[in-house]
Each structure stands twice: as structure tokens, then as C-alpha cells.
Design a protein around this nucleic acid. Structure first.
Lengths: 239, 239
DNA sequence: TCATGTGAACCAATTCACAGCA
DNA sequence: TGCTGTGAATTGGTTCACATGA
């Protein structure tokens, strides 16, 4: 089930996930007038190892100069093109609650070639409102919006209870890339790319690590430490 | 840089990242009155393979019954305890713009043992306002808020330009877990756990895959396809 | 007779270490 | 000289397949 053909001659998943980060760092360097950058410097700024960075960039072709480094402007161009920045990826936001509004007003994704072109909501009280310069349309018009505006990506900012239905609706309309903020595991047909961002999951992960730290520092009650012991199995935790 | 001692005898990072998902699915099953569940069913609902699920749970100890499956209530308890759900992890949100407000009003993380207890902002026009039942306090009081309220996790919802300073401030106040929504790479000292959620990165990843699909379908202009060829080198890509 | 729990095999990704080239 | 680009080694994680035990 795992992407075999990607491995064959494509770009590894892990690399793709880092490209937007590189692009952002490179853009920042360019704006500050930096002309060339070494893999060491760029890696530090991006929070990865220099070997990883060089290998990542090598997947996109050789764009550096040995003994010198990478020309920032050239690399920005190239990475940007690989990420599809030359085209405009149209996005629809489904669910115009407080999160949906925040996302609609978020200006940060224009640099990555995506643009919000439509807003949908199922609540008649919200439909018709103007948010971030766009009129909120009823969910019933999903297929029409997706088809006529050439939308390629759907962002779901609906409550957990409505997420699967909203997801099914955009998929039925032909969407093949979905980014969900709802705290549920969505089921999508094969061929649809689903990414999920979930605040409670992120906080849960942080809590797990904090808990480790607390256990190592002896801050937990005895009963809980016993439970923790089952988890760590060995003594020497971080301290 | 990477967590070596965790790897030594702890729970693998990849497993930790899935535990909140399992917990959510299990909680849902419990609420629907399901008493026992097999690894096959649970894995399907969580969107992972059954072998992965069994191995993940085995890291927490054996809590299943051979030939039968897992008792939902018992497993919810156990996974919850591992994630630190028995305690309350206090959270401060820094930056009360539209995203910060949405996060403050988000009810979905209570089930994972975290609770927002303070809101901070540097803008005098926002300080003093009440959001989600809490008064917005000035950033200058960061150290005081973190120390006196026992805050363990900071959520940064500030603009990119202010993120590093905000991060430095909470770290200086003693915070060791940071969840950032700002589109910049933050630098933190060793020992501080940083997670970053970035909308534009997520959309960039989706755009990359969409671009692949478009290239495979011959939808791109000739010049762009040439660039794409450099990247993919082979034809068929599934995911 | 089941489905769990787990060694072994496999695969992807990171890291090392150095060859190759401006 | 110095830094990129890349085979080789290593690490971490997933998947397989079956022994284990209710």
C-alpha cells in the first residue's frame, strides 16, 4: 500500500515535507540580500542536518556549486517550481466558524502558490456573509463551486461531527487533496490525498513528553510513576 | 540533536504520534457502547495497518486478550494514562488574533487532558479583553503567568515576525513544550520540545502532489512539464 | 480456534565519509 | 582549498508470519 513507485524514482515523502520549509528560509535569506548560502548554513536555519539537506536538494537536481554553496535566487526559483508555485492552486474552505474565518483571513499561504477562492458553510445564518472579501456560499453548491472555479484543494474547518460528510461532499465534487482540521479520522477513497492537522493530537504528543520529564523529575504521584515504569521499562530517562 | 535516550528504551516517536489518534477512536467506540475491539477493526478506524497497531500497543504493555481482542474501556484508561490524561496540562496561548481566538474557543482538547488557563498578547488594544472566559494579559507578565499558574505548554499564535521573540520569552519563563502556528523555523535551546503546525507548509505538500497528478495527466504547459520531468523521472505515481 | 504479541525480514530515511569539481 | 553530491553504512520503523495462550 505504501508508495512504491515514489520510491522507485520520485522524491521521498520526507523530502517533500521539508521543501516548503527550505523555500521559506531561502525566501527570507533572499529578502535580506544574501546571495549564496552553504548547505551548513541553510540546514541550520531549517532545523535539519546538512547531509539531509544536500540529499534532499539532490533529489531535485544539482543546483549548487562545489566549493561555494547554493545561489539563493536560483534555488528559490527551482524549489518553488518543484512545489508548483508557478501555478495557482485554488482552495475552498469548508466551514466558516471561528477557525474557518481565521484561515480565510490568513495571508501566509499566498507565497506558496495557493489562493482561497471560495468559502462554504451549511449554516443558513452564515451563508451570504462576507468574510475576507468572499461571500459565504451554501454547502449545497459544493460541486458547482469546485467545478467552475477550478478548485483543487479543500480545507475542512468543520466540527468533528460534520467532517466526514463534508469530506465526502468535496470528494464527490472531484477534489483530490483535502486538508482537515477536524479531530476525527476521515475515510477517503484511494487516490485522494488527505492530510490532517489536529490541535488536540499535537498537544497530546507534547503532554506525553512533558509527562516523561515529570516522571524523570519525580513529580508524579506514586501510582502514576508505577504506570510510567511500565512504559519506559528502563531507568535512565532524560533527566 | 535527536532524542537518543528515548530511542534507547522508550516508546518510538512514530508510536507516540499515533497514540492520540487511537485514544480518540477508542473513546468514540466506548461512547457508542462497543465493549471489545479487534486490532483489525481498530486499525481500520485509525487509518493504520493492524500489525502497526498491535506493535504500538505492545510498547505500552500487553492489554489485549488473545483470541478475543481489546477491551475498549480498559484500553481507553491505559492509553489515556500513558498520554498523561490523568493530570491536567495547563496551556497558555500567546497571540490573541483571529487564530488565537479560534484556538481559545476550541473545545476539542479538553479530552486530551490539556486546559487553556491564560491568554497573552503584546497589543495594548487587545489586553484586558475577555476571550473564552479569560482576560487577555500583557506579554510582559509571561514569567509571572507561567510560574504562578503552573503552565507547562505554550501555544504560539503570533505573526511570523514576532514568533521568535515570543518563543524566547516563554522559554525564558520555564516552558519546555511549545506548539507554534507561525510560519517560521523557530530556534529553541536543547531540552525544549518544539512542534510546529503550519498551514502553508501543509498546503505546499498537497500542491506538490497535485502537481504530480497534473503532470501525469498532461495538464501542465510544456515548459513546466520539462521541469517536472527532472523531478519525477518516471511516469506513474499513485499517492 | 481464534486474535494477540513478537522475532525476523524488509524498507525508507538519515547519517557518514569521501570522491569530484569549481 | 572547500563544499557539493552521492555511494555505503546505519538507524528507525513497518510489515510479515507464526508461536503463544485465552
Amino acid at each position: 500500500m505504501r508508495a512504491q513507485r515514489d520510491g522507485a524514482r520520485g522524491v521521498p515523502d520526507a523530502t517533500v515535507a521539508r521543501l516548503p520549509v527550505y523555500l521559506r528560509v531561502l525566501t527570507g535569506l533572499g529578502e535580506r540580500g544574501v546571495a549564496t548560502v552553504s548547505s551548513e548554513e541553510l540546514a541550520l536555519a531549517a532545523g535539519v542536518g546538512s547531509a539531509t539537506l544536500r540529499k534532499d536538494l539532490s533529489h531535485l537536481g544539482s543546483y549548487g556549486v562545489r566549493g561555494v554553496g547554493y545561489e539563493v535566487a536560483r534555488l528559490v526559483q527551482h524549489v518553488g517550481r518543484c512545489l508548483g508555485l508557478a501555478e495557482e492552486w485554488r482552495v475552498v474552505i469548508v466551514g466558516i466558524g471561528s477557525l474557518g474565518r481565521a484561515l480565510a483571513n490568513y495571508s501566509g499561504f499566498a507565497p506558496l502558490g495557493t489562493r482561497v477562492v471560495a468559502l462554504l458553510d451549511s449554516d443558513p445564518a452564515v451563508v451570504g456573509e462576507r468574510v475576507a472579501g468572499l461571500e459565504v456560499l451554501p454547502s449545497a453548491r459544493t460541486a458547482e463551486v469546485v467545478g467552475e472555479l477550478g478548485v483543487r484543494i479543500a480545507v475542512l474547518a468543520v466540527p468533528a461531527s460534520a467532517a466526514q460528510a463534508a469530506c465526502d461532499a468535496v470528494v464527490a465534487a472531484g477534489i483530490t487533496s483535502v486538508l482537515s482540521f477536524a479531530p476525527v479520522e476521515l475515510q477517503v477513497p484511494a487516490g485522494v490525498e488527505l492530510r490532517s492537522v489536529d490541535l488536540s493530537t499535537e498537544l497530546g504528543i507534547l503532554a506525553f513528553r512533558e509527562r516523561r520529564r515529570a516522571a524523570a523529575a519525580g513529580e508524579l504521584s506514586p501510582g502514576l510513576v508505577a504506570a510510567e515504569e511500565r512504559v519506559t521499562t528502563s531507568a535512565g530517562a532524560t533527566r
